[in-house]
Design a binder for these strands. Sequence first.
DNA 1: TCACCAATTTAGCCTTGTCTAATAATTTTA
DNA 2: TAAAATTATTAGACAAGGCTAAATTGGTGA
Lengths: 226, 226
Amino acid sequence: MLTRSEEDHIKAVHTLLQDGATAGTKDLAERLDIKASSVTVMLKKLAGKGLLKHEPYYGVKLTAKGKAAALKLVRKHRLWETFLVERLGFKWNEVHDVAEQLEHVQSEKLTESLAQYLGDPAFDPHGDPIPDRNGRMTERDTLPLTECSAGAHMRIVAVKDGSDTLLHLLDGKGLGIGMRFAVIARHAFDDSVELQGDKAAHLTLSAQVAAHLLVELLPKGKSRKP
Amino acid sequence: MLTRSEEDHIKAVHTLLQDGATAGTKDLAERLDIKASSVTVMLKKLAGKGLLKHEPYYGVKLTAKGKAAALKLVRKHRLWETFLVERLGFKWNEVHDVAEQLEHVQSEKLTESLAQYLGDPAFDPHGDPIPDRNGRMTERDTLPLTECSAGAHMRIVAVKDGSDTLLHLLDGKGLGIGMRFAVIARHAFDDSVELQGDKAAHLTLSAQVAAHLLVELLPKGKSRKP
DNA sequence: TCACCAATTTAGCCTTGTCTAATAATTTTA
DNA sequence: TAAAATTATTAGACAAGGCTAAATTGGTGA
């Protein structure tokens, strides 16, 4: 059984590694909003419990045990986010803090009942994959919309690091996970992107916005059927 | 903002007072499963925050502020219990520990969204009243089945202090909240009670079981309609 | 009324997780 | 390559919330 702080540290390590960053003492301190010296102490403790390996000035790696613990937390976090959005009517940007609390509730039965209740979803409301009970996630080929060439057909599958203001903008344009578009043009001048939706919907997105949208390419011509 | 331990203490005081017991240092220590000396310290802290008044050797009383805090916790606890049973398929006896964790999640919006999602229930799966957002509870005239005279028509509205074994027994007999019965007989020898349900269901309950069932009397003759 | 028993509090200690300040180790840069 | 900058660790302190042991308080029975 891990304490709340131990769980927070494990998850922070996992998130950093997932993003391709190194998980050094300093990086963890920033992410957890505590001092580096506190992180040092906790890393020692977690290494002692066999959850991670710590190589100073190089970074932390999770052991299999640590990885499993992290994935369990990610699973719980994303299941709760799904619940909050799909059942309780929260907006994308309102769920994080609450899910952060709910993910620490300890009950195997609760987690699995919730998953089943939600229909064992494979992706959360932000489009991020939800690990199954064994820690396995559905893989998808995605790319940022900024790297999508003109003429491509695609579907929006995830929103990266959605801040309040970004989500507000997307809401305003009626954009959401799962929507399909054709890329009409990419303007070299400002890297903005023009999209054409199914129903005469025509949109222009700035490079900043496009960079936050992950899309999945669709076979051409089939603009409707999956 | 209260800490988890502060919340636990406040709720323990409230529960004891609710049951008509006095909330002395020792009683609280027993209920919280900590030592009396620890309770003393915490009571001092809570009194300092204006949540309760402490009269040594006499007992603790909650202030209006303390009462409000306690009712908020009770509300959250019972809403979560309702969610767990009605939506996730938990049994009566499986919900307490999980609800104990969930009740500490801090989010006004979560609480109210959950309440709305559940249809603003006035009673939880054990039949206990759920305080509304202002702390008000629906009142009901109830009495233990042991005090119900022969010939009376009644409905089971709550199960007091349901242990695993009691709930298992009730399940086995097909008994649940909301069911209507006529009291056929009360046997002086062992205080057992005989009940007659709508559909030829005939049951005998021991005094021990009957004492745990709270019932609401129904106008005679109307065995069907509320 | 006095002595005892139970309830309560006080005093001092421990653990967890944090902090600050000082020190050490490593990498970067000039 | 040596100084500077960055990163990490250690040492000592503190707050929260628990514990044990000892002292205190209040009620009660002989």
